[in-house]
Design a protein around this nucleic acid. Structure first.
Lengths: 339, 339
DNA sequence: GTGTTTAGAACGTGACGACTA
DNA sequence: TTAGTCGTCACGTTCTAAACA
């Protein structure tokens, strides 16, 4: 009755540990939090008792008194696509290393009320900060005139609203992609862009356009997809029914896959007839037919930077609103060729 | 000084609301929890005060007294691949609908200590249950002799350990894929399987093998990949250097992409020379060349079932250890053809 | 004095029994 | 009686100040 009394139901408290170690609960607390002024022998006795009882401090009680939940909220859209999923993964791991747990909320649409309700749920869970991973510019606007009570960090490609922002250099990446096509001698470079509301899409489009303008090349209206391989296919069908471009810079790898499919259907060879560059470098792009020349985004670094931004906000209110953006790297494979 | 005193820093408590509404804090509590025995007029006054003060109940205090954190822990590996990401997404949404927040932990490897440390972090956050999304059978074993103190639900394709299990019928899906090839008249059906430790891989392999045996076809040793398109490509190169099979059932769509790449390199046409079936139906598989015949997994339903299993466990200890498994559907596209 | 330890007071909620009309 | 309220206590921790070697 005394030694077999393992009671996983009724959680053991700091007082149980204290009693077993023969000290006060306060001393146990000092040991738990690695505070000084505890004799080595005492510390050892307490730690022994903790192990013996399988004691786990109550996060709830701790959060109540310290007003710190050790939790960060993440509102993320775009899953289960590779990019957003990778960012969420990296964010989670980085947060964990920093001692924070992540509560994620994945709204089903990007309407204002839906987003707010997602954020409110996180606030109710008393997260210490909220991170917004949402590609559409309207998303940031929805949070613009709303006092959350906690720091807000946005993973976004455009500077909008008041929140701290973290991002990769979509514009620079696009310029690298188009620059590569220009170096190969292409002068007729089309762009299949992502949806109009997407900040990433707009930045990549801007990079494409500026690259053409700087080189004195004519700029035509870009085509618009929705990131899906399906839209890339449909746009390809329509485009190729009219004419065959020299080269195409596609807004992401998924649309590129569909576009390659359309090229194949039309009997056109890549890169002999058309050069194609994608964006993202998803793992599969190496085995598209042909293997895709594309732009690699460092999603892992982005997730880490988002956590860093949160920690900076949590430490002191005044922190840089934006860190230097990484420029994605060009990965040259077999879908582009000298003209 | 009286009406402008918005203080988002020092959170407003239930007592502030009570004072403003002219009632006791206990009445506010009843309103918050939708308990009866509150006069309509009183309820309205309280709700008015709540809105006016932007009051949000402290989850920490609530969790402390009720011993319920309204939080579920999720240990998930396999991200950022499409399948796991989809399951995590669906799980999160279903949990939210049920009133639970999800804290996810994504361990960097599947070693026992790493997994335990991930689960311990969730326990420290006082989650009410833990869900394990891990494809390798060793993962379940790591939790087998460990009393967590909270219910454990595994999303896994094999019945292992004591935990409640939820899954899709990998075996049945594989039989459908192979059955399709058999109906087309193929008798030489190879299998490129996933890694040996993967429960999904083993179940699909078992389905392939049984389908061959039941039809009286010879069974040869399956080839082994690691789910990546790269491994599909390498295995394809090696295989095709030796011989050209009639038909191949590949363990997942990513490996299939690489395998198609190898077939293309070898100058073989699909489906004219070789019929190919994949598994998963990732969104891109519709635009592989050729569009892929594959098996569609309902990850959304799986995520929902996992949440249901958790809720059942939380309600009463005795609940069915396993629900009926859904059999994935065959999606016929252009990579298979009558012999 | 100085390093160690202790007792008591918060933190913000929900459960319970007692009080009121 | 009974529907509607209210006051007190407990939850498990950290913080503060005081007491001890």
């Amino acid at each position: 009755m005394s030694s077999n009394d393992e009671q996983p139901r009724a959680s053991t408290t700091i007082f149980d540990v204290a009693r077993l170690a023969g000290v006060s609960h306060q001393t146990v607390s000092r040991v738990l939090n690695n505070l000084p002024n505890v004799r080595a022998a005492t510390r050892e006795r307490v730690e022994q008792a903790i192990r013996q009882l399988h004691y786990v401090p109550s996060q709830a009680a701790r959060a109540l008194v310290t007003r710190r939940s050790r939790t960060i909220g993440l509102v993320a859209t775009g899953l289960p696509d590779f990019g957003p999923s990778s960012i969420v993964l990296s964010f989670n791991r980085s947060a964990r290393i920093a001692g924070y747990a992540v509560i994620a909320s994945h709204p089903t649409d990007i309407e204002g009320p839906t987003l707010r309700s997602a954020a409110e749920m996180l606030i109710r869970q008393s997260v210490e900060a909220i991170v917004l991973l949402a590609a559409e510019r309207g998303v940031l606007d929805a949070f613009d005139d709303w006092e959350l009570g906690v720091p807000l960090v946005a993973i976004a490609s455009e500077a909008r609203g008041r929140s701290v922002r973290v991002s990769l250099d979509q514009y620079g990446g696009a310029r690298r992609a188009v620059g590569h096509l220009q170096e190969l001698g292409h002068r007729d470079i089309l762009h299949i862009a992502g949806p109009a509301g997407s900040m990433d899409a707009e930045e990549r489009l801007r990079g494409w356009r500026d690259a053409l303008i700087d080189a004195g090349m004519p700029v035509v209206e870009p085509l618009r997809g929705d990131w899906s391989s399906d839209s890339g296919y449909r746009i390809g069908q329509q485009l190729l029914a009219e004419r065959t471009p020299e080269a195409v810079f596609v807004g992401n790898d998924q649309m590129t896959l569909g576009f390659l499919h359309a090229l194949h259907d039309a009997g056109l060879r890549v890169p002999e007839d058309v050069s194609v560059v994608g964006f993202d470098d998803v793992p599969d792009s190496e085995h598209f037919s042909p293997p895709l020349t594309t732009v690699r985004q460092d999603f892992t670094a982005l997730g880490q930077e988002a956590v860093s931004a949160v920690l900076a906000q949590l430490k002191d209110e005044e922190s840089p609103v934006m860190s230097a953006m990484r420029i994605p790297e060009l990965v040259v494979r077999a879908s582009t060729r000298q003209r």
